[in-house]
Nucleic acid binder design. Structure first.
Lengths: 125, 125
DNA sequence: AAAATTAATGCGACAATGTTGCAATAGTAC
DNA sequence: GTACTATTGCAACATTGTCGCATTAATTTT
């Protein structure tokens, strides 16, 4: 199935590009001119399939999406940590990658690492 | 608010104890004799508050619960990784703790690290 | 042991998030 | 321009978890 370029996809992509944070559906929707909910989700899922973005599941179970910055086509580096602030709820990517070693016989497909707490803007004192 | 001991709590606790895996609501419910859904969730949330169990959010956003084995009262060690098998969907705790270093001004409250892939029983070949 | 207090439960309704089927629309290749 | 089919919008649905409220029952007090 060959991808087609559409205004909706371009819009969602530009929104993802415009921020340095991982974004959830609502945040993206707010910045669009009424793109249907299902469509936004479908676009985001496509971006993940195509290696354009990656998905982070927050502690509450909500999905966030961020562009793959250090990924080349076919080669993905998703073993970095993410941080979600319990106050402003922003999700950001941390650069440092972590080393994952698995027991014998295990195969890794993906890693979702999320630290939650308070970001430097929201931390008390 | 002082906790009371009830048959439901004992049952849920014994179920958690009986398995070496983190469990989700459904799996627990299957093993009980009709404890209400809301009740099970409330019990599990209490266990987390009280430091008896910890919560793992799976990639799909579903919550899993496991007993805190290496936690003393008041002192919790939750910066270990979890693994969920994409085939059998079991969630297990890995022992090794990971080292988390945060940027200046950030405060950590919790860590949810989940590797997904195939466990040694389900890995192809 | 009975009464009083209030935590825990069951029920139903609800909220939030994400997905799917289907008909209509619109990219893309020719 | 036509044909092909990916994409969209809509509505309905699925799943997961929470909440209010009346009832039940664990624990404390008398």
């Amino acid at each position: 199935m060959k991808r087609r370029n559409t205004p909706s996809k371009e819009k969602v992509l530009s929104i993802l590009k415009s921020q340095n944070y991982a974004m959830c559906h609502d945040t993206i929707a707010e910045q669009t001119d009424d793109i249907n909910r299902a469509t936004i989700y479908r676009i985001l899922n496509q971006f993940c399939e195509d290696g354009v973005a990656h998905r982070i599941t927050s502690e509450s179970g909500k999905q966030f999406f961020a562009l793959c910055k250090s990924c080349n086509a076919g080669e993905h580096h998703h073993n970095h940590l993410h941080f979600q602030c319990n106050s402003c709820e922003k999700v950001e990517c941390f650069k440092s990658e972590i080393n994952i070693s698995l027991p014998e016989g295990y195969q890794i497909e993906n890693f979702n690492g999320l630290i939650s707490g308070f970001c430097n803007s929201c931390a008390p004192n």
